[in-house]
Design a protein around this nucleic acid. Structure first.
Lengths: 199, 199, 199, 199
DNA sequence: TATGAATGAGCATTCATTCAT
DNA sequence: GATGAATGAATGCTCATTCAT
């Protein structure tokens, strides 16, 4: 196992353990065991527990976002199709993946790690909202939608996805939410609300 | 200070401390100091840390929900007005109050406390969604709206409020969300999306 | 066991353990066991390991020095008798007592604890040297001795006592120094060197 | 860098680090970095931390002592001059040099390393005291001094030098002792005390 | 009942030592 | 021989819980 691989193993283990117990509740013993390394090895890769947490966020974010960015940038379709694409990306790349655990983790621990929250805001949230805003603006410019609400409050477009993640984290065991259907319903509501008209 | 009052003081202190540090990170020393009682006294009212957390959730939920229930049940207005009322209740009774901290706390700790999550689901979430569903159904019955999406997925009506709470918990310090404007925009989007027409 | 007694027990245990292993080498587990208290109890009395070390120094110093001060201040005899008294105090109150271990400990750890060394200098060393200086000055004034060397370098009077403590700490097991005879020889050498004449 | 040179570098680094932090407090990481070698390399030259400490003592002692031995053996002057020479050697070869740090280190750690203390006693202390004793005996034989105290307790001759080293280690930063003047005063006191007379 | 000192299991972190390269 | 990443036992400190007063 080389250095990069080991680091990856540690981060994967950390995601599991932090997601399961929260930051304060996570034991580095468990992270080490899960990663298959000695406890001391963690400290060869990360200065302390907090740095490990930071590494977690930094590691898991770049790929998804970069892909989403690229996919949407070069997409030629209508606003409706773009929103479908956005939802598809969410469903495939976030929901049910480690990224989902990370979102929950950030919501749970964010208030306790202001700098990390700021980083997350800068690198993830504002970029994601920027993408949404760009989609909405293009739709307006093309006359496909008539409301600028999604430009002013792009969070409204994302909210159901956030709630879906939170919901399944809390209630998924006994009252699971069908995320695909849920987000599809959101799509319909949203497009109609934005004044969408098939052209 | 009599027994009931003391219990109230402990729960109020616990809300502050748990909200600030999460379940694992909260120190009962701090709860005791904040409540103005000795540490041992906590154990006269709650069996252990977890019971205190449970007590917290149970305590803070009944009043808000009962009031919302009542207010909406006897409300004579249109669906649009009802949604305005719902938003007003959220803004006045949840956002910026201890209940808000509780929502964040439940999102953060829920996955670690399945029984508590189930309790929360039963006592809070499903009741709140029931109210939304009833409003939506009444709107449909009256012909004020045409879409049954809010009946099938009442979570869509609530999502922005959840996100607003989460957002301000994480990013409020440097990029605060104007909750009133945000939820008002949501209202417009939602009503139009549901096929609202002024009659 | 009341609070004061417990504190005393902890300090006594700490003296033993620190003297035996040095500051860095001492285990608080051992201090706790030796004191007959739980590990956490140490922290009710001292903020951390260093504070415990400080407490040690502060605790063991006041009594010896105050007694020496008083005994010498009211002593009416000649310079020779005073030096005998000084040596007697050293032999009875320092050599072979916990204070001896403390001297060794201070020599060993002083360079690592500048503030503690400064405290020790201020509260012990300079006061002890002040006593010596006063004795020497009185001898000069009375014409019992003729050299002012002990006024200028009172450390010369104390040096053999320091060396005796160090010697027995290191070599006592296989080449013990007869401290009483050693300091008595020092007395003779010193008095003659200072120009003592029986009057 | 050949083997001998590397060993020397390690010992020099070890002296610095051990002197600065004591045995238990010294980190072999620091020794390795200071010596410019990898941590594992230390173990090619010394079996473990303790062996390194032993090597330290053994390495730094031979030269000084051998030189002192030789210089004094062939010295033709009076007892007074010999003591001056002894003091000059101390001031030039010990005070302010690594050997000084070693003395402090031995005082601090000696009780924890009985075998090392025995070695030190045998190789350094008793040889140094033997030199002093020889000087004193020659002075007596020649009639230059009249007291045999320095033959019986040669430690009395060395004590101020030990105290000077200890003093400057602990208090040097804020109340430095002028070692030259101090030892010179000691010389005067000592010679007079021993019954020295210019012949 | 209320108190808060005492307890001790638990955890983050360090560092002497090993060993594959 | 030399390296330095990996190891894991050891240790300072914390904090939920207990209990004598």
């Amino acid at each position: 196992m080389d250095k990069v691989e080991r680091r990856r193993a540690i981060l994967a283990a950390a995601l599991t353990v932090f997601a399961g117990h929260g930051f304060a509740g996570a034991r580095l013993d468990d992270v080490a065991r899960e990663a298959g390394v000695a406890k001391g090895t963690l400290y060869l890769h990360f200065a302390d527990k907090e740095a490990l947490f930071r590494g977690l966020v930094e590691q898991n974010i770049a790929p998804v976002l970069a892909d989403a960015d690229a996919a949407i940038a070069r997409f030629p379709g209508t606003t409706g199709d773009l929103i479908d694409l956005l939802i598809a990306i969410l469903v495939e790349r976030v929901i049910g993946t480690p990224a989902e655990a990370l979102v929950r983790l950030m919501i749970a621990e964010g208030p306790r790690f202001p700098e990390l929250a700021a980083y997350y805001h800068r690198e993830v949230v504002s970029r994601a909202l920027g993408i949404v805003r760009a989609i909405a603006q293009r739709g307006l410019d093309r006359g496909e939608i008539t409301s600028d609400i999604a430009v002013r409050f792009p969070q409204l477009v994302i909210s159901p996805a956030v709630v879906a993640v939170v919901w399944n984290g809390m209630f998924g065991a006994f009252d699971p939410l069908d995320v695909r259907a849920f987000l599809s319903a959101h799509r319909d509501l949203l497009l109609r609300g934005l004044g969408w008209r098939d052209t």
